[in-house]
Design a protein around this nucleic acid. Structure first.
Length: 597
RNA sequence: GGGCGUGUGGCCUAGUCUGGAUAGGGCAUCGGGUUCCUAACCCGAGGGUCGGGGGUUCGAAUCCCCCCACGCCCGCCA
């Protein structure tokens, strides 16, 4: 599409208001740019107007009372761009859209763009969203999946905002974590150290063929982790393995095990709609020599220092890192690399492929992000990664979810429970559906509840995990949005429509529930742009609830199929537009559209 | 001790970047609504010193300073 084509129903009004206001304010001795006014133009309170402008500041500068300036600005304001009238209320200038025209133009735009409604103009900068990148050491617990939900949604939102986006998973197959898995599974199970054998005891009947690979191969992991703290021989065994990995000689089963565990993890993520376009194995960076090249560049860096034991470190005080951590270790005494060093190599590789490189990281990686940025600067790299940092999912007793501390809920278990509950809800109200369809609906409703529950909170804030709340299908939840979609789909199905009706009369849409629904529908493109610009993907979840809520109010108050023509057809058009809009936002937040539920 | 983040009715949360009109939702509680397109819904009621204090401003949940509380990080782990 061309960038001048209309994609936001509110754009003509906003643009007219700000340019005209800018002119009129300038004439009054208060120059203010159109861009600045666009920021200051507020959504007026519902029922008062569509947009409002507070004149206090301009009035003060012009030396006139604010209410007088507001009245003056409203007086004779030219009506264009879909404005019906401009009024003043105290110090505010209030702009009212011409409702029939807004209805007409919004529905037309939704129908013209269809699945593309919500999208912005195409952009050329290729973006990479790296997220999740969890070590392949065992099943996901709910705490870790927040990374994937934020990252996956951000990728969807950036695509909607017009960027070509690749999602990428960086697999740490080099470090101690993944070496631990290979180490323990290279020992016959009956020869495992007792603490590991007892701890990892699978339930009766379980086997490597009945359990998912992530859970099966991950069973011994927490116990090996404990063992290494007190058993020097075991620690040595793992350390030897790490050296083999670093030198490019992984044991035969290493990659195979990592892949198997990873596949199990990806299957879990797939249930909540998370998929990856690309995978990069950390070991490939060692093998292709890029880590070695990074070490060479860092050796020549302005603040490089060789310690007594041969370790290469950077004195990073001037990068503003906290004093105690201002020493960045590039290589160990034996010359082997560390995670931050390898991450530099990875980022250089990403920079060669993408104009924007975005990393989704948990708050525990905050310092790593700054270290990485400092290291990239040290070697003269000008491109910088963007970081999206999110807070943990916490448990009621305080602190974050942790497998080791025994306070973790596996994603699969949560989903299984959600799906189970969803199934009984579906069965309660849909006796007509075949079992297969019930199962499919239940899977998507359960997944929708879980994904939405985690997505709805701003990344800056912790998510407090409670089973009952994560499993809620009511109120501010994923299924609430899915239900509104299903209701709209149901009406259209009963009307025998597969697309929007032709020749509807927009003037027949005049009820307050109808016109406020239109106003909400019109906000989708602006909401997408905002979410993409701020990386606050939770705002899409908020919008999804608002549009579903508005549709439900309309649904409750306004008969569609039983209405007389031409109202019936006009209302069907509104339902079709609502279905399209809710469906599109469901795509953005990664929830399945359900035609029935 | 230092760094980063958070604190909004009983509980959860939006709004904070960009100060502006009665702080918007949800859960729970109480009271209503289904001979009618799916009640996973809708309507109504009660419930708020926006952690505390100070400052800036015509105006502060929002900006600045101090304090308190909570989370995370401060490895030649990743």
């Amino acid at each position: 599409m061309s960038s001048s084509a209309l994609w936001d129903p509110w754009a003509p009004a906003r643009s007219h208001i700000t340019t005209e206001l800018s002119r009129r304010l300038a004439a009054r001795g208060f120059p203010e740019s159109v861009e600045a006014l666009d920021r200051q133009l507020e959504d007026a309170p519902a029922g008062v107007a569509d947009f409002g402008y507070a004149t206090h500041r301009a009035a003060k500068s012009a030396g006139v009372p604010a209410d007088r300036l507001a009245a003056e600005m409203a007086e004779g304001f030219p009506l264009s761009g879909g404005l019906a009238r401009v009024t003043s209320d105290g110090a505010y200038v209030n702009f009212h859209a011409d409702t029939p025209r807004l209805v007409q133009s919004t529905l037309e735009l939704v129908f013209a763009r269809g699945p593309e409604y919500g999208r912005g103009p195409s952009r050329t900068e290729k973006a990479c969203v790296e997220h999740t990148s969890a070590n392949p050491t065992g099943p996901f617990h709910v705490g870790r999946v927040r990374n994937g939900i934020i990252g996956d949604t951000l990728a969807r939102v950036l695509r909607a905002a017009g960027f070509p986006v690749t999602t990428e998973y960086y697999i740490d197959d080099m470090g101690r974590q993944s070496a631990m898995i290979t180490w323990i599974w290279s020992i016959p199970v009956d020869q495992w150290p007792p603490s590991v054998r007892e701890g990892a005891q699978p339930p009766a009947g379980a086997s490597s063929t009945t359990e998912k690979a992530d859970r099966w191969y991950g069973r011994p992991y927490p116990f090996v982790s404990e063992l290494l703290k007190k058993d020097p021989a075991a620690a040595q065994g793992v350390a030897d393995l790490v050296r083999d990995l670093e030198s490019g000689h992984p044991p035969a089963r290493h990659r195979e095990l990592a892949q198997a565990v990873l596949d199990g993890m990806l299957a879990s993520l797939g249930r909540v709609g998370i998929r990856f376009d690309s995978f990069v194995w950390e070991s490939s960076l060692i093998q292709d020599g890029s880590v070695a090249r990074v070490i060479e560049r860092l050796r020549k860096a302005p603040h490089a220092v060789i310690e007594d034991n041969g370790a290469l470190v950077l004195d990073a005080r001037e990068y503003g890192l906290p004093k105690e951590t201002a020493k960045i270790v590039v290589t160990r005494g034996d010359g082997t690399s560390l995670y931050p060093t390898r991450d530099v190599a990875y980022h250089l590789q990403k920079f060669s492929r993408f104009a924007r490189v975005i990393d989704v990281l948990g708050q525990d990686h905050q310092l790593h992000a700054r270290t990485l940025a400092a290291m990239l600067a040290e070697i003269g790299e000008t491109q910088v990664p963007e970081f999206v940092i999110y807070q943990d999912i916490t448990v009621p007793e305080g602190g974050r979810m942790s497998t080791r501390k025994g306070r973790a809920v596996y994603l699969d278990d949560l989903l299984d429970e959600a799906v189970e509950r969803a199934k009984s809800e579906v069965l309660k109200r849909r006796e007509d559906l075949p079992a297969e369809q019930v199962a499919e609906i239940a899977e998507h409703v359960g997944a929708g509840a879980v994904r939405y529950h985690i997505l709805r909170v701003a990344p800056d804030k912790p998510v407090k995990f409670r089973w009952e709340e994560a499993l809620s299908f009511e109120g501010r939840s994923g299924p609430f949005v899915q239900y509104a979609y299903a209701r709209a789909a149901s009406i259209l199905r009963k009307a025998g429509l597969t697309g929007p009706p032709v020749g509807f009369n927009a003037d027949a849409i005049a009820g307050s529930e109808e016109t406020s629904l239109v106003r909400v529908l019109a906000r989708l493109p602006g909401t997408v742009q905002y979410a993409a610009r701020t990386a606050h993907v939770h705002t899409l979840a908020t919008y999804a609830h608002e549009v579903a809520e508005s549709f439900n109010r309309f649904y409750q108050s306004t008969p569609v199929l039983r209405a007389d023509e031409p109202v019936r057809t006009a209302r069907l058009a509104l339902v079709a537009a609502a279905r399209q809009t809710i469906g599109n936002v469901l795509d953005y937040v990664g929830l399945e559209r359900l035609e029935r539920m």
